[in-house]
Design a protein around this nucleic acid. Sequence first.
RNA 1: GUGGGUGUAGCUCAGUUGGUUAGAGCGCCGGAUUGUGGAUCCGGAGGUCGCGGGUUCGAAACCCGUCAUCCACCCCA
Length: 421
Amino acid sequence: MDSIKGIKGVKDILPEETPRWRLIEDTARRWALCYGYQEIRIPLFELTALFARSIGSATDIVEKEMYTFPDRDGTSLTLRPEGTAGTVRAFIEHNRAADPLPQKYFYIGPMFRHERPQAGRLRQFHQFGVESFGTSDPRADIEVIALLWRLLSDLALPDLTLEINSLGSSEDRAAYKPLLRSFLLQQESRFCENCRRRMDTNPLRVLDCKVPDCRAATESAPRLMDHLSPEARVHFDQVLSGLCALDVPYQLNPRLVRGLDYYCLTSFEITSSHLGAQNAVGAGGRYDGLVETLGGPSVPAVGFAVGLERISLMLQKTSTALRDECLYYVAAFGEAGVKCGLVLLDELRKAGLSAQCDYRSSSLKSHLRQADRSKCRFAILLGDDEVARGTVILRNLESKAQEALPLSGLASLLRARTFSA
RNA sequence: GUGGGUGUAGCUCAGUUGGUUAGAGCGCCGGAUUGUGGAUCCGGAGGUCGCGGGUUCGAAACCCGUCAUCCACCCCA
């Protein structure tokens, strides 16, 4: 009989790795709460139309990467490829804009995109993201960038670079695109096939091409940054000076263009040189028009998302192995010992002390071998002799020091020791 | 969707120009006078050589196909 395998690009996170994942998730939650963001839990799937409208129907995500399927009545549903669309939908649906307080949310959970798996890229992957609604002030941009920077720094991820750019307003881009396009057309022969196609569909992306010849060809291209409206320019300058004031180091990258349609003004990305080809750890930007696009009021917004797998990959290299520890191993053997051991295990656990036992082991020797492997700090030896005396032997597995303790009331005695130390 | 690499024990991998019972290390289970773990020594379990076809007296090895996986492109977190 053939065994059933997992789905391509959908990975199990095994017990060896979950402590690392909890560290990442706990750190993210802590920083988000510290900055006044509140957790929101949104569905894993939504109407397909939501993503098509928010992300942009001409983007790669919508065109070829979504897990889309018909509901039983035929309506098209899609597994969420990112978290912003659903968060904005919930924001509108529950009329949160009517609440006068700043609306700041974070989410954490799995996302789904049908891509070829690669280092740092899976079909089910995990993101932590924040969305700050209602504030057009550049300090909101600074805040989310600082939050992202502090979070990643706290995890001590190596060689991070924050790159930042301004995409201007949609009017700025509309005015800039013809300039760029005519520049590109003048030297069309220098570009790769991909870029020639992009000149029509999305000329901004040509700036982002990794082919060295293409990069060289766009070296002297007109810069969007030089064609910003005065308002956009001021906004951008204030973001940059704010980052300076907070000592968040950044690098201007005029080529930085995001792949989702809804971004405007501030756009940023944090990369690491330790990640292989997919070097972006997290990215985000401002999306002032999105709430309105999805049928809500005109509400400015800014946010980011980070890839948890990519953080995990880097953490694997830098930090020592984490593991979940168990305190006591109960080595119960012999006819009477086994009976008492069953009860003792339960009492320890009821007292909040982690305890385990290998029920297969029948000799003290094999128990101690298991205790050693389990990495418990103590073994409690309980054989027929101890039962007869009404005691147990508490053995420190590291120092090998042993002491006899009374069996009755043992759990509360150990509890008192554990929590007073 | 495109390109390349890799599929042999639970894990990491050997396996000669095709040659007979397919190996090692680690891990696992047991033992070394029966109540004391890690070290050492000894023993044991565990493999449709990814799958299907072909070439051959003979295939883990060569050929074709297929699947899986990894890396890269595209693009993204």
